[in-house]
Structure formats: C-alpha cells, structure tokens
Write a protein that binds this DNA or RNA. Structure first.
Lengths: 346, 346
DNA sequence: TATTTTTGCTTAAACGATTAAGCAAGTTTT
DNA sequence: AAAACTTGCTTAATCGTTTAAGCAAAAATA
C-alpha cells in the first residue's frame, strides 16, 4: 500500500528539488518566484501522480487562517434554525469556508463552552444566533477582536454587525391581519425571554392592537418559560379561553410554541379558524398539513443566511469594516387558519 | 489590549524557563518529567493569568490526531437526519470530539467532495449515512485505512462496521399490522433506489403480504425518483387508486414521501383512514398534528447515534477492532391512521 | 572584458506544540 | 573519595507548510 500521507517533502524528493520550489509551483506562484517551466511541469505531474493533498492543518498553523466559520445556533432541532444552518453551510462552501455547527440549546453556558471550543479550534469568525444572557460573550468577542455577525437575534445596546428579520414589523403585520379579518380578542403566546427579538415581537403585537383601537387585555399575553413549553402553552391557552374576555385568535411567537399549541387545541376539540384563528411565526410542513393550513410569517431564511456569510467573509478578507446592521422583512403567508370571520369591508 | 494570542513560548519567557517545561506541566506530566514543585506552580499560575489556550492546530499537526469526527449525512433538511446529527454531536462532545457535519443531499458526487474536504481537514474518522452509488468511496476509505462507521444505511456486500435499523423487520411489521387491521390492498411508495435499506424495506413489505396470503399486485409498489418526489408521489397515488385493484392503505418508505403523499391525499379529499390507511417510516411533528395522527415506524435515533459514535471512538482509541455490525429494532407507533377497519379477530 | 542584471534554484526560519536525549549539578552508594 | 544515581532543567528535532533572503550561474549591459 502507498504511504499513509504524501507531503510536499515527498514531492520535492522525487523531483530532486527543494520543498520551497514545490510550494511555489503548487500555489501558482511560478511566475513571481521565477520557477523554470520544465521543473514546474514535472512537479505538477508528480503531485498529481502521488495524489498530493495539502495539509490544511499545516497551512492554517502557518497562515493563522483556518478558513473555518463557527456557526452557533440556538436550537438545531428547530427547523427554522436547521434550515438556516444549511443555507450558511452552502454559502460558506461557495466562499471556500467550512462551517462547524454548534447548538447552544438556548443556554448561555453551553453557548460559552461552544465559543471556547471553537475559538481554540481557531475558527476565523463566528455567525451567532444568540441565546439569552449571552451579552457578556458578545462583549468578550469584541474585546478579543474576533470577527462575528449576529443572526436573527441581536442586542440593540451593543453595537455589532447583525442580520435579522424585522420582528416588530412582522408581528405588527400579523396582528393587523387578524384584526382586519374580523378577530376581536387576539392573544399572543411568546417566550418568557428578555431577548430583544422576542420583546420586539410582543411590542409589534401590542402596537397593532393599539393602532386598530382594540383594548389590550393583560390576560391575552402569555409568556411561557422556554424549558417547559408543553405545559406552559397548555396552561396559557386554557387561561386565555377561561377569562371573561376569551380570545378568538392566537398569535404564536415561535414555531415550537405553535406546535405545542395546536396539539392542545386539537385536544380541546376546538376548530380552527371557527373557534380560534391562528397565526404563527416560523414555517414548516406542519403548517401545510394541518387540517386547516396555518397562516405564518415566513422569514427570508435563504437571504438571512447568505447575507450573514457574505458579511462575515467581507470582515475576514478586507480589513475595512463599516458596521452593517441589516433588517429584512418577513412575509405573511395567508392561509385558512386566519380566514376572515365574516365579510369585512376593505 | 493584550497580545492577540498567547503561546507556550510566552509563558516560558515570563517564567524564565524553556518551553519544554511548560508543556510538561500543562499536560500534567510533572511527575514523569521530574519538574520542580515551585516552578510547576509558577507555570500554572502564569498560564491562568495569561488565559492560555493551547492551539488545537499545533497539537494536531504534531500528534496527527484532530479529535474531530466527520459526519456525512444524506440530507440535513430531513428531521430524522437532523436529529441524528444532534445526537452524534452531543455524544461526540461527551467523548471529547468535535463534529463537522456535511450534507451530501443524496448525491454521490457531493459526498465525494465532502469526504475529500474533510480528509484533508484531517478528521480522525467518519460517520456516514451513505448516498446511492457511493460504494467506491467506501472502498477508498478502507484502502486508505481511514476509520469509519456506516449509519442507518450500509452495503451488505462490503464488509464494514455499521449501525442500522433492521429495515426489513420494520417494514414487515408495518405490513403485517395493516393486514391485521383489515386492510386488503396495501400499496407502498418507496424511493427508486438501489440502496440496500430501501430494498430491505420493500422486501419486508412484500414478504409481509406473502406471509399473510395476500396476492401482491405490481401496481401496488411505486418507486419514486428521489429528485422528483412531489410529482412522483402524486402520480403514484393516482395510479394506485385508478387500478382495478385500488389500494386501501399505503405504506410510505420515508418521511419525505409521506409528507408529499399526505398533501396530495388532502388535495384529493380522501379521508384517512376511512378511504386510505397510512403507515409511514420516519417521525415528526407532522404525524401528530395531522387531523388523523399517523402510524409510524420510530427508529431508535438516540441509540443509533450514540452507538455509532461509541463504535467509532473505540476504533480510534484502541487498535484492536473486531468489526461490529449492529441492527436495531424500529418500533411501530400505532395511531389512528391505520385503525382497524372493522372488528377483527385476533 | 568587466560589471550589472536576471534567472533558477536552495537555505532556513517560522507557525505552536510535544518529547527523546542530554547535561550539569546534587545525592547516594560503595 | 570515586562511582553511580537522581533531580531539574535545556536543547533540538519534528509535524507540513510558506516565504524572505541568499547564492551561483547565465545573460545582458557597459
């Protein structure tokens, strides 16, 4: 069997030259480095013959660049993030980068661990979907001068590059849509989180009610703890329906919340949209296959992912960096679950 | 601001010793290498003080081990594989390994590219969910003595380590279950693929009919090209229903097929299970939220992933390797979509 | 013809770690 | 007091690349 690993040294030996020449030729620097035509050809042939594969490790050690991006997402089991991951991976590859994915599971400690592991794997930079209470980590990255771009979630009080959906606008649109379609008592189930994107979604919802002259009731807004979604959602729905102003529509702030919610709604034998109108953030096959297709806010996943990679790569390759803060629009996909309750004037 | 990157050299300098001593101390070899107590303490303090993080790159270059596993899966957008990926990642981390994930998108060329990229990123070994026509790649890995474990799919004619579900048995059970519940004309929609696991699923289906004295009809088995699922499934269902022996139940060989199938079944306004019984491979929220919860074959995802990692790590750390070929059982989760058609004797 | 320039190559240091080998002291054994 | 260990450290090679600097021979210029 052939040698375990063929290095530049093997080629040099076989060609009867120094390793330097081989390196020059194999990196296309024959002209600048004044390598003879014949010997250049010979080196190339031998390299091909031995099926030489350069060691990424050695290259990286020398250059200080690994051509690797660390992608830290909040939850890989959420299809939204899984898709983001895929887009990022593809786009990175197109730019010559490999991606190492880590899921923080919405947990700041895990996120910190991931960052540490990836930093001393020498990733060139990060794309991060932040989890709650991870502000300090972002500050650390800035202090250490490690390039990164925040994705989907960002901290308004920390000046960083980010690419995100306009969560406020999305939520506002969803609320307005429900009002226009005749729903009068619109509830929202959200994560009990200080994360800005969640606060924005809530703010958008409340403003949409206010601007449409609907009196917001405290019992309509239910924050659910992220680690007890299933039960939290159940209880929230029960309460929303039991109040003296029972809701006739619910806006779910995330995909996971709506999945739990729809299960419970089925269980209660409520009909959508007759008994309860539904709009949800996120997108998934579930929403198409549910007996009543679900109206949802479609985030521009591909564009989000691509732009994040593009931004990061720009930061990595050029050193001028005008900070970029990009907000994108979500699209409201109208389905049966938020159908107009009765003919409404427009 | 502090130095960009602190190396063993910086510590040595500050402590007034050679780099060798630092290395010994930081690797806990103080005893074997007879390092003085005082200086050892001093070195540790300085390392902590400077927040020294060893360069994984340099370590790997020296040792030839990267402590990285390459995970190549057939399709990251399929929740089954996404979950597998998550399990593998967690289990690997528990063993001190990092995972680099790549999706081959069921394409042999892409799979080959991924292997190449990861090989010269020097991953220590692979866990692979093979795509069609990638046998040669498996042979190459064997020739190059690169450790790997096949996951979920394997090639019976190539002796390799693998961890897989017993696809034959799963399919056989599903078929038998439908027969027992009174379905008489059971169709199957599968991928048009030579992959062994798919052939096994088909064989299990056919054997279950045979053993239950049901005359298999050629029109009941529909292979669908993997890159035209949506239309392929539509056509298949239409044909199955139009034949003179129209099916009264369908077994879907994969999650993606059933999602497409259910959409079309909705569109045809067929009722499940009254008009059509359904059993599917794979598992997902879809199956719970569909108006009629879907009976499915639940593969032991966690155990599959963990075992694969365990096996690979064993191959990487010890050099004795009795080949391991592990088959696990899928569990049939019975839901309403394959309800007994009428009271049946058991 | 003497000098400069160009051409085609080699040498060697560097990236950051590990580790076998070696070398002075100090300590123990005879 | 000579021989033999021990102790506590340093030196230097190595992993696979890149690249600045240097050097001799050939070619161009004076």
């Amino acid at each position: 069997m052939s040698k375990i690993k063929v290095s530049i040294k093997d080629i040099a030996q076989k060609a009867g030259v120094s390793t330097a020449l081989v390196s020059y030729v194999l990196n296309g620097k024959e002209k600048e480095s004044r390598v003879g035509q014949e010997i250049a050809l010979k080196i190339k042939q031998i390299a091909a013959e031995l099926n030489y594969q350069p060691s990424h490790l050695a290259k990286s050690l020398r250059s200080g660049k690994t051509h690797t991006i660390g992608l830290i997402i909040a939850d890989i089991s959420n299809p939204f993030f899984a898709n983001i991951a895929r887009v990022v991976e593809d786009e990175a590859k197109r730019n010559g980068y490999t991606v190492i994915i880590g899921s923080s599971d919405e947990n700041a400690d895990k996120s910190r661990d991931l960052l540490d592991v990836l930093i001393n794997r020498q990733v060139d930079g990060f794309i991060i979907v932040s989890s709650e209470n991870s502000e300090q980590q972002i500050h650390n990255l800035k202090d250490k001068n490690i390039p990164f771009v925040l994705l989907d979630r960002y901290f308004p009080e920390i000046p960083t590059d980010f690419v995100s959906t306009d969560h406020y606008k999305a939520s506002y649109d969803a609320g307005t849509h429900l009002v226009r379609n005749g729903y009068k008592r619109i509830g929202m189930i959200a994560y009990d989180s200080h994360l800005f994107h969640m606060q924005e979604r809530i703010r958008g919802y409340r403003d949409s009610l206010r601007d449409n002259k609907i009196d917001f009731q405290n019992s309509w807004l239910k924050p659910v703890k992220i680690n007890t979604i299933e039960n939290g959602v159940k209880a929230s729905i029960d309460e929303m329906l039991a109040s003296d102003q029972p809701v006739d529509a619910i806006l779910f702030a995330t995909y996971s919340l709506s999945v739990s919610g729809l299960k419970h709604i089925n269980h209660l034998r409520l009909r959508v949209p007759e008994d309860l109108g539904i709009v949800s953030f996120g997108q998934a096959e579930v929403f198409e296959l549910y007996y009543c297709p679900i109206t949802y806010l479609k985030q521009p996943i591909v564009l989000l992912g691509q732009t994040a990679v593009e931004l990061l790569v720009k930061k990595l390759t050029s050193n001028l960096n005008e900070p970029a803060q990009i907000l994108m629009k979500a699209e409201l996909i109208e389905r049966a679950s938020s159908k107009a309750k009765y003919s409404v004037l427009t």
